[in-house]
């Protein structure tokens, strides 16, 4: 069976819908991973020992096991404890938490790198520890950490393909469904890859622009 790309336009609407889902899931999971990353970083650095240590253990496990395995745990685990979420919500939670752990590592380093004088000055001015963190230290840490987090978000886009395995109709599963009808795996997987590549280029472009703005604001 040779290659025949002429049937591609007929299924373009399904592919484009899949793209929209991939973009939506990526953006939602990216936001979750960003907010989660900040929360996790604060817990890992400032929570009392009794919370901090088990938390670090969980972080360590999530960094040492494959995302696909974690997706199975979250998707089927939630069902087991009686929470029956739609697959795409489970996918967003799984992707978001996985990358929140990686973002947390970056943010922790950045928080520790913010000059100690900043915290001391804020405290002297009468801010509480929490206020000083929230209003002075974390905003500076976040600015420093945006470029490497951008790399994580591009990795997140590519890993969003994994949620096809738990049945989310994003780009990869859309391609799979079309292939089920047409028996043309090569054409449609290459097409899906091309769309991922284009989205990837778009994200890299946005990342460069943001980095330029940050370097100007310094």
């Amino acid at each position: 069976m040779g290659l025949d790309f002429s049937i591609v336009p007929k299924y373009m609407d399904i592919i484009l819908l899949g793209c929209a889902w991939t973009l939506g899931i990526t953006v939602a999971a990216a936001l979750l991973s960003f907010v989660g990353g900040i929360v996790f970083a604060v817990i890992a650095l400032y929570a009392p020992w009794i919370i901090r240590q088990p938390f670090r253990l969980v972080e360590w496990v999530f960094m040492g096991t494959p995302l696909l395995l974690q997706l199975f745990l979250i998707y089927f685990g939630l069902v087991q404890i009686g929470i029956d979420l739609p697959a795409f919500v489970a996918g967003i939670i799984g992707l978001g938490l996985h990358f929140a752990v990686y973002n947390s590592e970056l943010i922790q380093t950045a928080i520790l790198a913010v000059d100690k004088g900043q915290m001391e000055a804020a405290r002297t001015l009468g801010l509480s520890r929490g206020q000083a963190l929230r209003k002075v230290v974390i905003p500076q840490a976040v600015r420093d950490v945006i470029p490497p987090i951008g790399n994580n978000m591009i990795a997140l886009l590519k890993d969003s393909a994994l949620v096809s395995v738990i049945g989310v109709s994003e780009l990869t599963l859309s391609a799979q469904r079309i292939i089920g009808k047409t028996y043309r795996p090569f054409e449609f997987y290459v097409l899906a890859a091309a769309f991922y590549y284009v989205i990837n280029l778009g994200m890299e472009w946005v990342q460069r622009r943001i980095e330029r703005r940050i370097s100007l604001s310094r």
Partner: peptide, 22 residues
Amino acid sequence: SVFRGTPALIQLFILYFGGPQI
């Protein structure tokens, strides 16, 4: 650029499912 810019899962599918076509 191409292999870092697309999901590994899709690359795997192209090779395994699409390979026989070529």
